[in-house]
């Protein structure tokens, strides 16, 4: 396959959640999501219950993909920040480390300036965690270590899923 599989481990998952929890407080945001560029939700903090997180992840990724296509058309590499302003709630969407999408939902209790400032700092931290994650996966692959849960599944396991 052309792109490397995305794998998330407990340790990094915790680190990532610490960073976005802190960002949630510092930016005075309502909800924060991290989404894979392919539309898979990685994590979410804040008032996530109120939202259909799966749909949100998929549409965010579609949005980033579409604006990325626009960027290429005008000779830009990508648009790394998108901002959607609503009557009450706003969305700040940014690309972290070239591969994941950080979505910050905030209202009038915060401001675009504050969100941008805090996002910038958190992005660097998140970026280094994702780098670490990639290295870990590459390293495991190189050493031929596989803790992949699917390596031992049987045809029966697969059939049972559809019964």
């Amino acid at each position: 396959m052309s792109t490397q599989q995305m794998v998330m481990y407990d340790e990094e998952f915790k680190e990532i959640n610490e960073v976005i929890e802190r960002l949630l407080k510092e930016a005075n945001a309502k909800v924060i999501f991290l989404v894979d560029k392919n539309g898979q939700l990685i994590s979410g903090v804040g008032d996530t219950e109120r939202f259909d997180t799966t749909s949100l992840a998929s549409l965010t990724a579609g949005n980033i993909a579409a604006t990325g296509g626009l960027a290429k058309l005008i000779g830009e590499k990508e648009f790394s920040i998108l901002f959607h302003e609503g009557e009450k709630d706003n969305l700040h969407i940014s690309i972290v480390g070239g591969r994941v999408i950080l979505v910050v939902l905030f209202d009038s209790r915060s401001s675009l300036g504050l969100v941008r400032l805090r996002v910038k700092k958190s992005s660097e931290e998140l970026s280094s965690i994702f780098d670490k994650l990639m290295r870990k996966a590459e390293d495991k692959e190189r050493r031929g270590v596989s803790d992949f849960p699917f390596a031992e599944i049987t045809d029966d396991d697969i059939d049972n899923l559809f019964s």
């Binding site: 396959m1 792109t3 599989q5 794998v7 998330m8 481990y9 998952f13 392919n38 898979q40 992949f148």
Partner: peptide, 15 residues
């Protein structure tokens, strides 16, 4: 490119 999440024990695939 599937996404395997060991933390939430999920695997996501795209068709």
């Amino acid at each position: 490119m599937s996404f395997i999440n060991y933390a939430s024990r999920e695997i996501n695939c795209k068709i």
